[in-house]
Design a protein around this nucleic acid. Structure first.
Lengths: 352, 352
DNA sequence: CTGAAAGCGCTTACAG
DNA sequence: CTGAAAGCGCTTACAG
């Protein structure tokens, strides 16, 4: 064992307490508490003495004691839909975890399977049993008004990722889906495509409407007529992508490019095209959204739109922590930029 | 608000304590404590009175108070590699979460990016700052002897999923990879394949050796000669699957079927085969392992081997909790069964 | 089988 | 700007 190991082994026997720090610094425990909690009424020289003692003793406040005596739990909950395709949640999780670590909070998870008839009861049990200070709600969980109401009633602040209907004074974050969809549609148009199929996502997600709007705007900007039959509903699932593609390819005049509102559906599009012996991109260009792992593993690799989800979740969780600490939070719109990742599933329109 | 909502709102103001329960049941708080902690020295009739009071008041012990006064933290850590392809970890997470919820424990996460020069320091900080009682270590994290040593030094019990070298008296769990690999190889042989390529995984994983052994056993059982050049090294990544496949397909007499040691590498095999214009399964049969989401989304869908990872992680975490409670734990070998999932990426050997 | 007392390590509420 | 006291809700160690 190194010296540090031994020090830690000792620490396991008896970790330094606020009393040890107070003695070392020659102040009362209350003053140490003030420094630890970054309160303002401490003389600079006192603060420095205390910080030096904390550093020397490697003091870390005992969370259990803080929780027991105070009004905070230092716990944030992450409530998410637990889908088969997990990469979105994984990124949210990574971002939230980073922010919690930085802010001295613990992150607790509640995976939910939808539809769930006991949704509210499950959330309520989680929130009260886990004694949460605040909750992060990624889409689409944040769009359930029943959950919003429950948390409001329990007086538990929440922060939402990509909510469909922003609330007043709410902590939320999103990325510019509409612009990204415009960009990717324009990209296809620039390659000569005029017959552009579009597969919508699950309407519960805000992104579904925004991505569709970007598509419409790009058509308009290029004076391409909108054809109702080129637009199919989907639910963001692989299977819904397949069946939507089936409908599009069965048209008398099928599209030469299909924009699927996420990668999973785009994988369904490619799957269905292959079943029909179509070549991609020679016979059909395909794009997705989200740049999930499958996008770069499928053949041909998928042109898609990447969102900085990790950064978004980290920023949002950081804001929530600020709010929980009673610090002022800048509620200005926080929109992150998405961008198109060009791969081999798209190509110039084949001229017959 | 329903009555239950209102009850909860009140509870937020003032949750019942052990004193409330004691008064209601007409016993001391120590007796309530005994019942809550399932200690044995309580008369049955007393226990029932207490349980009735607990139930009536909806009493839940305050974890912070338990932690502060006791020696346990009621926290289990999950330390995992945070890869791009997350489905394995997702399943481990789901299983561990279930077991923790059932056992009244909280699950805390430490995602690790490998290779990590500060590995031990990161783990140490996590373990001591989060005040963990025990740790679950999925492969390959559980195979780092430095981590095992650290946890042993700190006297923190751990439980491992699919360890390479089982330790004496250790809590671990695995599935029968060797048999599954034998089965899937036999399946290909039954379809007429005699030239069987094999792509190994990352040697740090126990599964890598087991899967290779199953392949070898199947060759032997069918009197097929082992060709060294049909076996390529991989690291479980998509890219390593591609380059291994490149090597296999460049052989003068390339295999008619390729067994990749996981789905991600199998996706690389399909990718590379497509780049060369090969048809699957007509020109090349491909199988993977793990039945990750990509297996059913790729075209053609992948024949693969499914492991019950959620159940494995749940069982293992449950055992760890038993151990932490001081209950006796049955250390008998726990091997879960895998099984082959047949899809369209495999077919009869084409007769030239 | 049951209980009275001490104490875990902090924050709160109050005083100065 | 600083501190003394009370108390959060349990478990431990001890007694009977």
């Amino acid at each position: 064992m190194t010296d540090q190991d031994q020090a830690l082994a000792r620490q396991k026997v008896k970790a330094p307490t606020i009393f040890d720090v107070a003695k070392q610094a020659g102040v009362s425990i209350k003053t140490v508490s003030r420094v630890v909690n970054a309160e303002i009424n401490v003389r600079a020289s006192t603060r420095e003495k205390v910080l030096a003692a904390i550093n020397e003793l490697q003091y870390r406040p005992n969370t259990a004691a803080r929780v027991l005596s105070g009004k905070r739990f230092y716990v944030i909950g992450l409530i998410y839909e637990n889908p088969n395709e997990f990469s979105y949640v994984q990124k949210v999780l990574n971002g939230a975890l980073k922010a919690c670590e930085a802010g001295g909070y613990t992150l607790l998870l509640l995976p939910l399977t939808l539809p769930n008839p006991d949704l509210i009861q499950d959330v309520r049990r989680f929130v009260s049993q886990s004694r949460l200070d605040g909750v992060v709600l990624p889409a689409p969980i944040g769009d359930f008004t029943s959950i919003q109401r429950l948390l409001t009633d329990l007086d538990i602040p929440f922060a939402r990722i990509a909510p469909r209907m922003p609330l007043a004074d709410e902590l939320s974050i999103h990325c510019n889906d509409e612009q990204a969809s415009f960009d990717v549609t324009q990209f296809l148009i620039d390659q000569g495509h005029q017959q552009l199929g579009f597969i919508k996502g699950d309407p519960i997600h805000a992104a579904t409407a925004h991505r569709f709007e970007g598509y419409l705007r790009a058509l308009k900007a290029n004076a391409i007529e909108y054809h109702r039959e080129y637009v199919q509903d989907g639910q963001f699932s692989f299977e819904s992508g397949r069946s939507a593609t089936r409908a599009l390819l069965d048209l008398r005049s099928p599209p030469s490019a299909i924009i699927a509102s996420n990668d999973d559906m785009a994988a369904g599009t490619i799957f269905e095209a292959r079943e029909r012996g179509l070549r991609i991109p020679e016979d059909l260009s395909v794009v997705g959204f989200d740049d999930t792992p499958i996008a770069s593993r499928i053949w041909p690799p998928l042109t898609t739109v990447r969102q900085p989800i990790v950064e978004m979740a980290e920023a949002l969780t950081g804001l929530l922590i600020q709010k929980l600490r009673g610090e002022s939070v800048d509620l200005a719109e926080r929109a992150f930029a998405c961008h198109v990742v060009t791969r081999a599933s798209t190509g110039p329109r084949r001229v017959n």
